[in-house]
Simulated assay, not measured.
Amino acid sequence: MILDAAGLALRNLFAPETRSVFWKVIGLTLLVLAGLWFALRETFVAFAMPWVDALMPGTPEWAGWLTFIFGIFASIGLALALALLLSSVTAIIAGLFLDDVAEVIEKRDYPGDRPGTAMPIGAAMLSSLKFFGIVLVGNFIALLLLLVPGVNIVAFFLVNGYLLGREFFEFAAMRFRSPDEARLFRSRHSGTVFAAGLVIAAFLAIPFLNLLTPLFAAGLMVHLHKMLSVRTPLAV
């Protein structure tokens, strides 16, 4: 079931019907990541560089290579921080485009089913911001666990698998159910939703392709919700 939903979601990435959403997701993701990069860089320059200058005052010219090496490590650290923030960025963008993706999928792949109802923009943004905060905290914990050998990579997949799976599935479910019903439905199928979340986390770990995570995750969970709803029919 999950592999079927993932295959349909991959097909959906480059479908003509979702081309406009495709470019919106790419453009907005790059824009947000660029903004975060400059914010992280300026924060680092403002707070870390004075500390470095105080730690190594009057560094002779021949030791300038130390500054160069430090700059390399700082850039790697900023890139790592940006990579960890990508899942949080995914959360924000998902709230903007999930309904667009869902409508395309429902019309194309489930024309005989009752169409879902888009969340009001205010509620969608509020839910996205809450999702952003939860994922941010989760990935901060995962970042701390990177220091623990044998746990680091596993922590990344478990944290993002659980959080992304839960939130994207509830986003998809709330097109047909109340928030409480969506959470209950997700809890009934928690194992399946978590496994699908791990697929999203794996997609998130693929460089460049991970820019399309909001589009892929939305499509995956829309299909998965449809498949699971066959077992638990919706009330008309």
Score class of each variant (00 low, 15 high):
residue 85 L to Q: 07
residue 124 A to D: 00
residue 48 A to E: 02
residue 223 H to R: 05
residue 166 R to A: 13
residue 87 S to K: 04
residue 82 L to G: 09
residue 202 A to T: 13
residue 234 L to D: 13
residue 208 F to V: 15
residue 79 A to S: 12
residue 117 T to A: 13
residue 227 M to E: 11
residue 80 L to C: 11
residue 44 F to S: 11
residue 66 L to M: 09
residue 8 L to W: 14
residue 14 F to T: 10
residue 218 A to E: 06
residue 161 G to Y: 08
residue 229 S to E: 14
residue 78 L to Y: 12
residue 142 A to F: 04
residue 123 A to M: 08
residue 192 T to R: 13
residue 214 P to L: 10
residue 159 V to G: 15
residue 20 S to C: 00
residue 89 V to D: 07
residue 161 G to M: 04
residue 194 F to N: 05
residue 231 R to E: 15
residue 46 A to V: 05
residue 193 V to I: 11
residue 233 P to F: 05
residue 43 T to I: 02
residue 59 T to Y: 14
residue 168 F to N: 14
residue 106 E to R: 09
residue 63 A to Q: 11
residue 179 P to D: 02
residue 197 G to D: 10
residue 148 V to W: 04
residue 161 G to E: 08
residue 221 M to P: 00
residue 112 G to D: 12
residue 120 P to N: 03
residue 141 I to C: 07
residue 65 W to I: 15
residue 101 V to T: 07
residue 15 A to L: 03
residue 175 R to M: 08
residue 159 V to W: 08
residue 69 I to K: 08
residue 15 A to H: 15
residue 27 G to N: 06
residue 97 F to D: 02
residue 192 T to S: 08
residue 176 F to Q: 09
residue 31 L to Y: 10
residue 85 L to S: 03
residue 103 E to D: 12
residue 176 F to V: 01
residue 23 W to R: 10
residue 16 P to Y: 13
residue 103 E to R: 13
residue 44 F to W: 11
residue 114 R to C: 07
residue 38 F to D: 03
residue 155 A to E: 08
residue 88 S to R: 01
residue 138 G to H: 02
residue 184 L to D: 15
residue 77 G to C: 07
residue 199 V to M: 02
residue 202 A to P: 04
residue 139 N to G: 07
residue 230 V to I: 09
residue 59 T to R: 07
residue 180 D to V: 12
residue 163 L to V: 07
residue 120 P to L: 07
